[in-house]
Amino acid sequence: MNLLLEGLSAACLLAGSFLCITGGVGLLRLPDFFSRVHAAGVTETLAAPLLLTGLMLQMDWSLDLLKVLLIMLFLLATNPTASHAMAKAALHGGQGPNDEKAEEDKGSIS
């Protein structure tokens, strides 16, 4: 039973770390704003709960377990919303998808 929990926890942590790394790579390598938001948002939304589940499997039954669960629920609600808000803000700011020219202009100013 203990070994099973350890194994599950390790699998969750590894999968979460892998997703974090892929999200980071996507954030750095993808061409325009929307694909980057997509890379970061989608992977983080799965990675954070996976990591937290991995941690929860190693904990005893206690109030701390419940707190981590609440953090997970909070992240599950806010993470996709943040990505959504960022994409909306970019659209609102006049940057369409596939608008690589605008991206280059922005890069030269800042």
């Binding site: 909070f74 919303t81 959504h84 808000a85 909306k88």
Partner: peptide, 18 residues
Amino acid sequence: AIGEQPVLRLVVKVLIPF
């Protein structure tokens, strides 16, 4: 200032009491 945002509205409505 940000216009009508149904998704934000829904999530924020759930979050604010907490």
